[in-house]
Write a protein that binds this DNA or RNA. Structure first.
Lengths: 229, 229
DNA sequence: GAGTGGTCTAGACCACGGG
DNA sequence: CCGTGGTCTAGACCACTCG
């Protein structure tokens, strides 16, 4: 008698794990499982939906539920505000504004943000520090037309990262991770040698149909982004 | 009259977005919202649970539901089998086994896998190709004691990646992303210059309490991992 | 057409944890 | 203590899609 959906999930996972139900194979439908487990169908539904979300099950109306044959691993990355990322590991957070100006961005930026190539954006460069040592170098473009009030924010004490979270809304975004080398301009800021390998994140956030901000962050050497699987 | 949980979710998101409910603020309880929306409480529950999972709401029994003040962005990464990642972008997948042997691993590996430092593991090195060009270099250690049958797998035609998915079970794992530079040994295999920046993933998977495999993958220069936000 | 998952409902009980 | 979210139930209708 399995009483709650987490028990059902555990039992289903056990059967998949034990190869009772093999990859690619169909599993019984919800009604049958509910009867077997002695619970309501909605409880089984909740459990199976949860497993399907993790990628281990493939569910389709009428076609039924089958065990995924090549389950792609799914990992949920939590990307906190940089202050919290640093303080969360017990280190002291520091912040330093490098520059703030209104400029015409490189075409790569305006294109990505779907803006005319001759418009101006707010350009912020800042350094985040952990225990007074360089941690990450932020290079950000903000569309002031989409973020009211940003013209009055000077970003000297509070990072654009946090200010935007409090003051700007966004509906969705994209993020990319890659690797690059420290250039001669960036290396001294990050306290590393030119040519050192750097982990990079690039984010682009949207408010419905308009790009809010685009940011590229270079992390000091040794940075790792980790998560469970 | 909001009839389904997705409409409820949309309306709640709209109110958060419109700052009707500000960051850190409490929102009405489920029963009240259900009454207002003209639907059952469970429908509201489903919607709010979904939003909470994305990090925008913070829910606690008795304390109620409040809008997150510093919502950490959450992104779900889908990490497919390498073959599917390459074929999914319309390129031809290629695979080449570089070496396969039984060795005593470096202590870093045995320690991470929580194994005695004098035990042996199966060591696989392989190259994944996209359109006949180097795509990623895989360096993997497998515990044959945890994966029955792995001693008979030669991995000449099928990658360890795929073989393990079909033949080995795992319950959980960890994954880390970072950056490194191409060493003199790896550079020619990846078709790049020594010193080129490489994106790296390191994965460690477990079957309950025993480490199954540890793999480090170096991606050829230019690789990006992207996802929605 | 018919079987399957997706969802809604109304009511109920319970666990947690703030006050 | 007691309000709030977490969950279960039984039944119902519906949408999708396979055959």
């Amino acid at each position: 008698m399995l009483r709650d959906w987490q028990s059902v999930r555990a039992e289903v996972l056990r059967r998949i794990h034990a190869r009772d139900w093999k990859p690619g194979e169909m599993i019984p439908n919800e009604a049958d499982l509910a009867a077997e487990f002695g619970c309501a169908r909605s409880t089984v539904n909740r459990a199976l939906r949860d497993i399907a979300q993790s990628g281990l099950l493939d569910r389709r109306r009428k076609a039924g539920t089958r065990v995924a044959s090549n389950p792609a691993a799914r990992a949920t990355l939590t990307i906190p505000v940089m202050r919290e990322e640093i303080e969360g590991t017990g280190r002291k957070y520091g912040y330093q504004l490098l520059s703030r100006s209104t400029e015409i961005p490189p075409v790569a930026e305006s294109a990505a943000m779907q803006l005319p190539p001759d418009g101006t954006l707010l350009h912020i460069r800042a350094l985040h520090l952990a225990d007074d040592r360089p941690f990450a170098l932020e290079n950000r473009w903000i569309d002031p037309g989409v973020v009211p009030g940003v013209a009055d924010a000077h970003f000297e004490r509070i990072s654009a990262n946090e200010w935007l979270l409090q003051n700007a809304a966004y509906t969705h975004g994209e993020i990319a991770f890659s690797a690059t080398v420290a250039g001669p301009a960036d290396a001294p800021l990050l306290g590393c040698a030119a040519g050192a390998p750097l982990f990079v994140t690039e984010r682009l956030t949207w408010d419905t149909t308009r790009a809010v901000t685009r940011v590229r962050i270079l992390f000091a050497p040794g940075y790792q982004m980790r998560t469970g699987l």
